[in-house]
Lab assay of single mutants.
Amino acid sequence: CHSECLGNCSQPDDPTKCVACRNFYLDGRCVETCPPPYYHFQDWRCVNFSFCQDLHHKCKNSRRQGCHQYVIHNNKCIPECPSGYTMNSSNLLCTPCLGPCPKVCHLLEGEKTIDSVTSAQELRGCTVINGSLIINIRGGNNLAAELEANLGLIEEISGYLKIRRSYALVSLSFFRKLRLIRGETLEIGNYSFYALDNQNLRQLWDWSKHNLTITQGKLFFHYNPKLCLSEIHKMEEVSGTKGRQERNDIALKTNGDQASCENELLKFSYIRTSFDKILLRWEPYWPPDFRDLLGFMLFYKEAPYQNVTEFDGQDACGSNSWTVVDIDPPLRSNDPKSQNHPGWLMRGLKPWTQYAIFVKTLVTFSDERRTYGAKSDIIYVQTDATNPSVPLDPISVSNSSSQIILKWKPPSDPNGNITHYLVFWERQAEDSELFELDYCLKGLKLPSRTWSPPFESEDSQKHNQSEYEDSAGECCSCPKTDSQILKELEESSFRKTFEDYLHNVVFVPRKT
């Protein structure tokens, strides 16, 4: 048989008469490798580009789960590009990614509803959504962080984005990388972005840091009482949809009607710091009717980097990364020049730590249904340095008659930039024990000054392991946590139920 035959053949030295091919099969003959313009397919066939392209389009058009959109890589027609490569849609070739590779997620039936953290986790790592997304989240724990972890990498949506009755959302900033909504599939009414009845939605994105392009379709905003109209108009300008909307697409009466839409800028007039305090004062603000001013709200939190936005980490279910302080308005003076500047002394802060701070007014709604208010920009203030805590785990070892090696770990709280350490030492008198000992005694162990690591005695271990207080009263049991108490109650309830079950099964009433 021919060298490319495997198993047997019907005619000697003829690659077209093989029972099976050793390498690849091409047009009725066995070959060692697939010549151009053919590609290896499933490690035994040679196919042309049209064959591989037909497989790709067949799966793409069917949208069946589990099928493969075949691509070409290293002269092979394979189910998908290997790690580190992405497909070129024009020629199906796998090309190296520039940075992290995109991950295209194809949605069944063309859309997916995100109504819980669990459903959001199914899209973790996706960068391109081939379909439409509907966000409908009523509640949950730590929602802002969970949504950002699972949806934060999405850069492109081919269909539309719909935010509907998501009472738990305060902001859409968890879509931190969303840059493009194509609108290839539109919501009824030709809408590519749809926001309806979101009672706590206050911000779409921080438009000073976020760009969003909507290729096709219109915007729809109705019944978002805490979303200011200025935020919607800003989205029109940034996304390129200005002029597409009709009169009733953006409701003037049901958007922002319960919001404090600040239209003035508060400026800080005085800032002073110490290692654990920050004193702030800002310019006074009074609405047209000074009785509408209820006070100020001061927001602050630790910020290692200057990239904080107002609604980071917030949701309507209680999660809030900001510390909020309510401040009463100052006494009002008739003389504008003698107006008191409101302020606040922030206490209990960490030394040498940068804080993000902003302040906003708290006002009631005027009778004319106009909203007044003022808010400052987010500023960054760093507390002063102070003395560091003591170095940890000092170790001293003498390696000769004239040297001592000293080692330690950095302090747990540096409280500033540590530039150097101060080492103090003092000579001590020799131990009298060394002169009084009889060095001729056998088995004498000389006193040693070398360091030995501390260890816990058996008594201390027994005390720590004991669940009861000892007789001397030195140790006591740790208080039980809520989960331990709940577990004990469940076990007790189970024992009672099981005992009742045994009584009912074992003891049967005697027939009379």
Rank of each mutant, 00 (worst) to 15 (best):
L392W: 15
L161F: 07
E237S: 05
N150L: 09
S333G: 10
D328N: 11
G243A: 09
V363E: 05
N141L: 12
I154L: 10
F174R: 02
I154A: 04
A149T: 11
E146V: 03
I129W: 06
G313V: 10
D367F: 13
W344G: 10
E231M: 10
N399K: 13
R165S: 12
T127D: 06
E146G: 06
H106C: 03
S116D: 01
V324T: 03
K350D: 15
G348T: 10
L265C: 12
E187S: 03
L293H: 03
D197I: 02
P304H: 14
Q245M: 15
S366P: 14
Q216T: 11
D315W: 09
I163M: 14
L169P: 06
D292A: 07
Q258T: 12
E187W: 12
D377V: 08
R182I: 09
I181N: 00
A303S: 09
C261V: 02
T213E: 03
F175Q: 00
I181S: 01
L186P: 09
T213W: 07
L172A: 08
A374E: 01
S132R: 04
Q354A: 14
S319V: 10
C261I: 02
L331P: 07
L266S: 02
N340Y: 12
N255H: 12
T323N: 15
K177H: 14
R179V: 11
R138L: 03
K301T: 10
I379W: 06
S173A: 12
R370V: 06
E283R: 14
D393T: 11
R247G: 14
I395L: 14
E246M: 09
D289A: 02
K112Q: 11
L345I: 11
K242I: 03
E155D: 04
E148C: 04
Y223V: 06
P330V: 04
D312R: 12
Q339P: 10
N211P: 04
R369S: 05
F175K: 00
P342R: 08
F268D: 00
N141W: 10
G110Q: 14
P287M: 06
K360H: 04
G243T: 13
V363R: 04
C105E: 00
R369D: 05
W205T: 01
S401M: 06
S158L: 13
P330Q: 09
Y355Q: 00
D289R: 03
S269W: 14
C126Y: 04
K301G: 10
K409V: 11
G318L: 12
T383P: 00
L279H: 05
N248S: 12
N150C: 07
N136A: 09
M346F: 10
V397S: 12
E246P: 11
R179S: 11
G343R: 11
D292R: 04
P287R: 03
N211I: 05
N320W: 13
E156V: 00
N307G: 03
T309H: 11
H341E: 11
T113F: 07
S333Y: 08
H222R: 12
S260I: 13
L169N: 02
D312N: 04
Y223D: 05
S119G: 14
Y194L: 07
A195K: 01
I134G: 08
L107G: 09
V390R: 12
L204V: 09
Y223S: 10
S260V: 07
N211C: 08
H106W: 13
L153W: 09
F275Y: 12
L392A: 03
S269T: 09
S116G: 07
S401Q: 13
L279D: 15
L108I: 11
F311M: 07
W322D: 02
D206V: 07
S319W: 00
I405T: 14
T254D: 14
D335H: 05
R332L: 10
E237T: 08
Y191I: 11
T215E: 15
E237G: 10
T323S: 12
E156P: 00
A303V: 14
F193H: 01
H233V: 07
N255Q: 05
N190K: 06
R138S: 05
N224R: 00
S338D: 15
E237V: 01
E111R: 15
E246A: 04
I114E: 00
C261T: 02
P411F: 00
R369M: 11
N211G: 14
P394I: 03
F268K: 00
M346E: 13
Y191C: 09
H106R: 09
I137T: 13
S132L: 00
L219S: 13
F311I: 08
P330E: 14
P284A: 00
L180K: 12
I154S: 01
G217A: 07
L178V: 08
E156R: 06
K337R: 06
E246K: 11
T241W: 12
P411N: 00
V390S: 03
N320K: 04
I278K: 00
L133F: 07
T185S: 09
T371D: 05
L180S: 08
G343P: 11
C317W: 04
K360I: 04
R281F: 15
L178S: 00
K253P: 12
H341D: 12
K162C: 08
K209M: 05
G256K: 15
L172M: 06
A251R: 06
N399M: 03
Y223G: 06
E184Q: 15
F275A: 03
C261G: 02
F311R: 07
E262S: 11
C317M: 02
S389Q: 05
W322S: 01
A374T: 02
L186S: 10
S132Y: 02
A120W: 05
R164C: 15
K242D: 14
Y194W: 12
